[in-house]
Simulated assay, not measured.
Amino acid sequence: MANISMMQVPLICHPQSDAGGAEGIQVVISRSDSGKVELTYGVLGSLEAVEIVAPAAPERVDELWKKTCFELFVGNIEDEIYLEYNFAPSGQWAAYQFSGYRADMAELETEVPDIQTEENESVLNVSVKFQLPDAWRGRALLAGVSAVIATKSGDFSYWAVAHPPGKPDFHHRDCFALHLEARGTL
Rank of each mutant, 00 (worst) to 15 (best):
G20Y: 11
G20A: 09
G21R: 09
A22C: 15
G24S: 09
G24T: 00
G24D: 07
I25E: 01
Q26H: 04
I29V: 15
I29S: 10
S30W: 02
S30K: 01
R31H: 15
R31L: 14
S32N: 15
S32D: 15
D33C: 07
D33P: 12
D33V: 14
S34V: 07
G35E: 13
G35T: 14
K36Q: 15
V37L: 15
L39F: 14
L39V: 11
Y41K: 03
Y41S: 10
G42V: 04
V43Q: 01
S46V: 06
E48F: 10
A49E: 05
I52M: 03
V53N: 00
V53T: 11
V53R: 07
V53D: 03
P55C: 00
P55G: 04
A56R: 10
A56I: 04
A56P: 01
A57P: 09
A57L: 09
A57T: 12
P58K: 01
V61G: 03
D62I: 04
E63A: 11
W65G: 10
K67I: 05
K67L: 09
C69Y: 01
F70R: 01
E71K: 08
L72N: 05
V74I: 15
I77Y: 01
E78V: 13
D79W: 11
D79N: 14
I81Y: 00
I81F: 05
I81T: 09
I81L: 00
Y82D: 01
E84W: 10
Y85W: 12
Y85N: 07
N86M: 08
A88G: 08
Q92W: 02
W93G: 03
W93P: 05
A94D: 14
A94N: 15
F98R: 00
S99T: 14
G100P: 05
G100I: 02
Y101R: 03
Y101P: 10
Y101Q: 04
Y101N: 00
A103I: 04
D104E: 12
M105Y: 03
A106S: 09
A106M: 12
E109K: 15
E109N: 11
T110Q: 12
T110K: 02
E111Y: 05
V112S: 12
P113E: 12
P113C: 10
P113D: 08
D114E: 14
I115S: 08
T117N: 06
E119L: 13
E121N: 12
E121Q: 14
S122G: 09
V123N: 00
L124Q: 11
L124P: 12
L124I: 13
N125Q: 07
N125M: 03
S127F: 08
S127G: 10
S127C: 02
V128D: 02
Q131I: 00
L132N: 09
P133Y: 05
P133N: 10
D134C: 05
A135T: 07
R137W: 02
R139E: 01
R139C: 04
L141G: 07
L142C: 02
L142S: 06
A143D: 05
A143Y: 08
G144E: 01
G144D: 02
V145W: 06
V148H: 11
I149F: 13
T151G: 11
S153L: 07
S153E: 00
D155R: 10
D155M: 11
F156S: 06
F156C: 06
F156N: 05
Y158S: 10
Y158N: 13
Y158I: 05
A162S: 12
